[in-house]
Design a protein around this nucleic acid. Structure first.
Lengths: 201, 201, 201, 201
DNA sequence: AGGTAACCGAGACGGTACGTCGAGTCTTATT
DNA sequence: AATAAGACTCGACGTACCGTCTCGGTTACCT
């Protein structure tokens, strides 16, 4: 009943782990995900290939962890979604910030790669959504519930669906590049969506 | 400005073209896009590899055309978006149909593969969006404009953005599998979105 | 009992035939036999591939005929082997001329290619020997017989073997490049061989 | 002056090396050199193609080493050229043995292929001559010098040229198949050549 | 003089092998 | 025991030519 030998993580080289993260992100940024290879990551990180295969099941998994790593560090001074009492203003703020993030190359390249892989690999998608996307979405749920409590959103509204009315259109433009992703667009999406959520007089 | 010798398409073998489409769709359906190889398509189609490389620049391009080919044949009896005068009912109808399509494996596998590649390959994305997605989206624009003319949608609303409020959430759930994609969800998205578009009394 | 359709040689395009010869010799000279392709010959000659396949069974056969063609033209003012009565002088003359020929690139390249192919393809070897080499060798037989009649070569000597004592060493150096092929060497071979053929006092 | 990364030969798999030699010789023997492919050798040896490309620059180089390998093993019980004091008899012995070797298929096929390639590839020729042919020729040089010391060959004779009078004719018949290669022919060549080398009374 | 059968240029086709790249596994020596 | 290094088998890549096969277009013979 032996599991096929799992490595002893207490012995793991922290140095190598970080070098692999950096190499993975750098290569994906410079040459794109498809042209990034495990061999290339290992070479750039000054690491043996086996060290990667020992700790990660796939190229996508390496990139996901690398990306989570920087995301966590960036999220230390967590901005969350502000709650000034003005829902529309607060949402426009975060949505504009999201637009900026999606438009910035150092974020765009790995995030795009991970999204694309997730589209096609349900296992990765579960990780990607669970560890990266869902926590973000929950912030919207909280803010919307708070607005609901304050009477700015109709009582019957399901925040989960409301949030997707906001985030879905942004994701759509970002992923498929149908049209440019701008602050103006973010604002309009917020406005159109909120019309439908506001209480009827 | 020398074009690197283009083949003479009048000499092209229709037989091979169709065989390649069928092989590509079959293999993507059976083994997934990543494990589908050009060599495999050629072998299954009973065709030389060069015949694929002569006419398409990449595996994704083959699949796109194969998919467009069946899409066109399927769209002969064009369903379009009905216009019964009841916008909500009409939209729910198409949105439910779209949900069914996205949930049906023979459509899902190649569409997902193309979407994933498009996320990461802007050139393919342009083709994918322009030839497959955008025509679909224009149907929404038309239906929404018609509703606007009938006074069921506020005059100031931009149909392009309105449509993304409908389609974006669906795409989001489909692509990233955040939550199940159901008829109920389609209905709710339509309802939430239309609240915001309806004229204020 | 129909032979699988042989082409009608009276209809053959002389223009194409000559262009193919020239292209074949030029390409073999410029890029070597191995890198010369039938497609390349056809392209250079401004000829369809089929025109080559119609008239020749192989690349080697094309080159052989091309080479024979120039060899015939060159041999119009046939030098043969002179017969001044001084066998040694006469042989040195031809042997030196042969050395010069073998050392001249325009002759060397195609001749080498044909020899190499012949080593490995008995059918081609038969053609090569019968149409090109053997006629040359017969000249030696005649000259040696004449010398025998004049009493300059022992009566018991078989001219066929004697000739190979002269030509063999030259061929050996040429084909395998063991040592440089010079006039001095030609002279020495003639001298050493003739010692053995001369009548014993 | 960067060498394009050379592999570490201390890590080399002996098992693969021997399997490649055997496969190469077997395939050349069975199907001929031209129809022997690197892919075929790799498959037959149960080896990755890359393992061949890592250690050899060409198909011919593989075959050369394979052939040298068996030649070395065969030459353990070195026969050399005997020195009984009777030069003619000794030479006839080796020349007949050489004829037998050249007429035996397992030797003929690879040797012929290597010779043919050498005719056309000077680099290979250098290897072929230096490592295989020249050591054989030196045996003749030694034997002839010994005969010279014993007064059975004229003092002025250059053994190098004398040897080519013996070996050249044999090679000529073997390579171009002008006439059959027999013991009788070997004897005659020896006799004719020795006439010219013997001291004049 | 018109019809027609061949050769001709061109090049698409189904194939085979090329030489390269990278995947994932395994081995060796080092820390 | 984990590591850096890298050789190994394997499979696919995209390319180059093979030899076969249409496809018009031009000759050149033959009614």
């Amino acid at each position: 009943m032996a599991e096929s030998k799992k490595p002893d993580s207490s012995r793991r080289s922290e140095r190598s782990r970080r070098a692999i993260y950096e190499a993975a992100l750098a290569l994906v940024g410079e040459t794109g995900y498809a042209r990034t290879t495990i061999e290339g990551i290992a070479a750039r990180a000054g690491v043996g290939k086996q060290t990667i295969y020992r700790w990660w099941p796939s190229k996508a998994a390496v990139l996901l962890e690398a990306f989570l790593d920087v995301a966590e560090q960036a999220a230390q001074g967590e901005p969350l979604i502000p709650d000034t009492g003005d829902l529309e203003a607060d949402l426009k703020l975060v949505m504009r910030a999201t637009v900026d993030e999606l438009n910035s190359p150092p974020y765009d390249a790995p995030a795009r790669a991970l999204a694309a892989e997730s589209v096609v690999d349900p296992g990765l998608a579960a990780e990607f959504v669970g560890r990266l996307l869902e926590p973000q979405l929950q912030l919207y749920v909280h803010r919307l519930r708070s607005a609901q409590d304050a009477g700015h959103v109709r009582a019957g509204v399901d925040p989960r669906i409301a949030l997707e009315l906001l985030v879905g259109p942004l994701a759509h433009r970002w992923l498929l590049r149908t049209l440019p992703l701008t602050h103006a667009y973010a604002d309009e999406v917020v406005e159109y969506a909120l019309y439908g959520l506001a209480p009827r007089p």
